[in-house]
């Protein structure tokens, strides 16, 4: 079985994004960028499936700028076998990404596509589900456990209030949640070796996909700032407040 792992280059999770003064977006100039943390978990899971002897090849794919090659190299250093970059200088929405991935799936025929449940920049949480829809294949979203069993995969999902397990016919699409695994480090020897692994660069046009955006961002602003409320004099007053809030 082949596993396809889509990954996205996003702002590093340690960096607090700064809204541009002119409201056109978030300032990403010279800001540290990394692989989307949920996608890192997806890469790790793919490697573990391969290490367990249930997959032969891992192909990492990214849709993004030329620098997303660094992100793919990280995936290769972690253990992916080869990579494909769909290079574009514009932002590509989840629907268009799903369409590109659909075309790649048609070429590569993976048994499993595993990707992050959402990217920490646009927080859309859509691409995996959309890809599953376009392919007419089942989806196991927000996975905290993935078990391949013959021609099926059992996915334990993190749902509101607990966990739920579904059984999906392969090929299937799985999206990862935080507790699925702890991704490994890309070690220095593996980073050196990753430089020699195959990385193909293509464009959306190569797959005949229209990536024109459907949503127009009119404005990006800072979230409203919380303002200080009241100070109460003593515990009794606090008890009254808690009762008003209905928690006591």
């Amino acid at each position: 079985m082949k596993i396809l792992v889509p990954v996205k280059r996003v702002i590093d999770y340690n960096v607090k994004p700064r809204v541009k003064a002119d409201g056109t977006g978030v300032d990403l100039a010279n800001v540290k960028m990394s692989m989307n943390p949920f996608d890192e978990i997806a890469v790790e899971e793919a490697i573990r499936i391969k290490e367990a002897g249930k997959a032969e090849e891992i192909v990492a794919v990214s849709v993004g700028p030329a620098k997303a090659q660094d992100t793919l190299r990280t995936a290769l250093a972690m253990g992916a076998d080869r990579a494909i970059l769909i290079e574009t200088d514009t932002e590509v929405e989840p629907l268009a990404v799903a369409k590109i991935l659909k075309a790649i799936v048609a070429e590569e025929n993976p048994g499993l596509v595993i990707l992050g449940k959402q990217a920490i920049d646009d927080d859309s949480n859509q691409t995996g589900q959309m890809l599953a829809a376009l392919l007419g294949r089942p989806q196991g979203t927000f996975a905290s456990k993935v078990e391949i069993d013959g021609d099926h995969v059992a996915v334990t999902r993190e749902v509101d209030g607990g966990l739920e397990t579904v059984k999906l016919a392969l090929p299937a699409i799985v999206t990862t949640d935080l507790r699925l695994n702890e991704p490994r480090y890309a070690s220095l020897p593996n980073i050196m070796k990753a430089k020699k692994k195959q990385l193909d660069v293509k464009t959306a046009a190569d797959y005949g996909v229209d990536i024109a955006p459907r949503l127009k961002t009119l404005k990006v602003s800072e979230p409203p700032v919380r303002v200080a409320g009241v100070k109460v004099a003593d515990v009794d007053a606090l008890v009254t407040k808690l009762k008003e809030l209905g928690v006591a």
């Binding site: 702002i11 607090k16 994004p17 809204v19 978030v26 920490i120 920049d121 646009d122 927080d123 961002t217 009119l218 404005k219 990006v220 602003s221 800072e222 979230p223």
Partner: peptide, 9 residues
């Protein structure tokens, strides 16, 4: 967007 660090219209 960005974990609530920005609001997009």
């Amino acid at each position: 967007i960005y974990a609530g660090n920005a609001i997009a219209t």
